[in-house]
């Protein structure tokens, strides 16, 4: 069962938010198939529903209808304990706002998932140091998030997402709060992890630098999949990109739901 080609599949996923009187269909029947080991970017303007899709795929929020399958298992069928196991072992999360625990040091943040997984303390610390070395922050393990720059905090978050050897990394606007050079470093790091460790990476983003490294790009607009492109195809149409960017910026809608 674990040998299937698709690691994530969504089927007619619908999520409706009620904003006062209005009902907003943030996701309106999304079907996406993601292969094992792929680097996927979900692109779209703010308010297009990409973060909602991120939450649905990651099991962080329940869709109102439709199903999300991880390794061919329907997430709606899982109880809270199995969902927690999935979040702990199968999926690693990276957020735009890093979501590190501010009172903990870098090392404590990275080892937290290993504690939840029941790993013995010494093994967890060894694993944490190993991961901090991978992201290039081994020498700053005892620093609190407030003592680290944005890019460093995001690298700690990436190390944390890898703590229990997940097969999927979900990143919601990982470069959204970073300057463009730091953003590029983070993208390169994600790409390296994808290549070296074979982790499937799914990012929701509107950072065009992400397109260069993605195997496929899923374009979302108004809660629907607009088009899915392979990288090869995007390279051909790269001339039209600038126009597209302006178009997207113009369509930026309800920020709160994005």
């Amino acid at each position: 069962m674990s040998a299937t080609e698709y690691i994530v599949r969504t089927k007619d996923v619908v999520k409706v938010f009620t904003l006062g009187e209005e009902k907003l269909r943030a996701l309106d029947g999304v079907n996406v198939d993601i292969r094992r080991g792929e680097y996927i970017s979900i692109m779209g303007p703010s308010g297009s529903g990409k973060s909602t899709l991120f939450n649905a795929i990651g099991g962080l929020d329940k869709p109102d209808s439709g199903s999300v399958f991880i390794n061919d298992v329907d997430m709606a069928q899982l109880d809270a304990g199995e969902l927690a196991y999935l979040r702990c072992h199968t999926i690693g999360y990276i957020f735009q706002t890093f979501n590190l625990i501010t009172v903990m040091t870098a090392l404590e943040n990275v080892t937290l998932p290993t504690i939840f997984a029941g790993t013995p303390t010494d093994d967890g610390i060894a694993r944490g140091m190993e991961l901090l070395d991978i992201v290039g922050l081994g020498h700053r393990y005892h620093h609190k998030p407030s003592q680290l720059s944005g890019g460093q905090q995001q690298r700690v978050a990436i190390a944390r997402s890898l703590a229990n050897n997940p097969s999927i990394i979900l990143a919601d606007e990982p470069t959204g709060n970073l300057d463009s050079k730091t953003g590029e470093e983070i993208i390169a790091l994600l790409r390296r992890l994808n290549k070296e460790q074979g982790v499937t990476i799914i990012t929701a983003t509107h950072d065009y630098k992400m397109v260069d490294v993605s195997d496929r790009v899923i374009w979302i607009r108004d809660g629907k999949v607009e088009k899915i492109e392979n990288r090869a195809d995007i390279q051909l149409s790269i001339g039209g990109m600038a126009g597209e960017a302006e178009h997207l910026a113009g369509a930026a809608g309800v920020d709160a739901v994005g």
Binding site: M1, V73, Q77, D79, A84, Y85, F116
Partner: peptide, 19 residues
Amino acid sequence: ETGRKPKAEGVGGGIKTQI
């Protein structure tokens, strides 16, 4: 965590539960 839903045979078989 206590209120388990009945699930179809085979579904979720590959997923362990969190300790």
